[in-house]
Simulated scan of single mutants.
Amino acid sequence: MSSSTQVADATGVDEQAVAQGQVTKSVYVYEAPVRLWHWINALAITVLAVTGYFIGSPLPTMPGEASDHFLMGYIRFAHFTAGYLFAVGLLGRIYWAFVGNHHARELFTLPLTNKAYWQEVVSMVKWYAFIAERPNRYVGHNPMARLAMFFMFFFTAVFMLFTGFALYGEGTQAGSWANRVFGWVIPLMGQSQDVHTWHHVGMWVLIVFIILHVYAAIREDIMGRQSIVSTMISGHRTFKD
């Protein structure tokens, strides 16, 4: 049985009725903790990217006496706060992968040894490349999205947390929890400036991922005839054939 057939069976969609324009099927996919994490995570990454940029490329000057300004201090505080939120959120998301429904685990599990999975990835590549006329139906993330979520988001997010807290520990100095837990990262990667550089590169990887993610979500809503953006608000995926 093909993946698309499995999806049709799982959603209970009558294909003949769909072809006649008689059915719009809604399926509950993402539970409230997953949706809450998604939007908090989006906010945290936005704050981290903006403040991180100014930490790496500070403003050249501020008018008036230096003692009257604490701009970089506020920027660093916002960055650190968003970093803690990002870390706690990812830990909570990992926890929910164990206690939530099976869609909550799709972000962390990939059937890389399954030939059918790679065939589905290829079919989605054709869809995004405007070669295929219509995509297969998936209740959760499609195979290509799962691949991107794992390697471009999850893998990069873990890397950013390790390098970020290593740099944070360098600032809080020896004896702090961050330095004790993540202090080994800096000598492993060479020196502090190397970690700064790779942390900056990781930020751009996440930004590229977010651009592609938003584009794909809006594109699927319009061309794929299935809800994507609203699904992460209501939790329900609607097939609008």
Rank of each mutant, 00 (worst) to 15 (best):
W184V: 10
H69K: 09
I75V: 14
N41W: 13
F153G: 08
T163Y: 00
Y128F: 14
H199C: 04
V125E: 02
R93M: 01
G92E: 00
A166S: 13
H102I: 10
A129H: 02
A132C: 01
V158Y: 06
V50P: 04
A97C: 07
K126F: 09
N114M: 04
V208L: 15
G235E: 10
S3D: 10
I210N: 03
N114I: 02
T163H: 00
M160E: 12
A217Q: 06
F182Y: 07
K126W: 07
H141I: 06
M223K: 15
M223L: 14
L147V: 12
F108C: 05
T163M: 03
G224H: 01
G169W: 09
Y84N: 08
V29Q: 09
W39A: 05
W39C: 06
L188F: 15
F54E: 02
A148I: 08
V47F: 08
T46R: 00
D241Y: 13
M144H: 04
Q226H: 12
I45D: 00
N114Y: 03
G140M: 08
G164E: 03
M149E: 03
P33M: 01
P60R: 13
R225P: 03
H103S: 03
F130Q: 05
Q20C: 10
H196R: 14
T231Y: 05
L161N: 02
F77I: 09
R146L: 06
Y84E: 02
F159S: 09
Y28D: 09
G175V: 09
F77T: 12
D194H: 10
P143A: 08
P111F: 12
Q119V: 11
T156N: 14
V158P: 05
M189F: 13
Y138M: 01
F98D: 01
A178D: 07
A166L: 08
R219E: 09
G175F: 06
I55D: 00
V214R: 04
V181D: 05
Y95F: 13
M72R: 10
R219N: 07
A148W: 09
Q6F: 12
L107N: 08
A174C: 02
I228F: 11
M203A: 09
A166I: 07
A8H: 13
F182P: 02
G171R: 01
I94V: 14
I222A: 05
G190Q: 02
P58M: 04
I40Q: 13
G12D: 07
Y95A: 13
F162Q: 11
F54Y: 14
A17C: 04
Y30R: 10
K115E: 12
F154M: 15
V158T: 06
S2P: 14
P143T: 00
A19L: 14
T163I: 04
D9T: 10
L59N: 01
I233L: 15
T172M: 12
V201G: 01
V13P: 00
T172H: 12
H102F: 12
F209P: 07
I210K: 04
V185N: 05
I75S: 00
W198I: 14
V99Y: 04
V139G: 05
I94T: 04
M223N: 15
N142V: 03
Q6S: 10
G92Y: 08
Y138K: 06
V50L: 13
I186A: 05
N41Y: 11
T81S: 15
F182R: 02
H196T: 14
G89W: 03
M189A: 13
A82C: 06
T81D: 01
F108G: 07
T61Y: 13
F155N: 09
S230R: 15
R76V: 08
D9L: 12
F130H: 10
A97R: 02
W39R: 11
L110R: 04
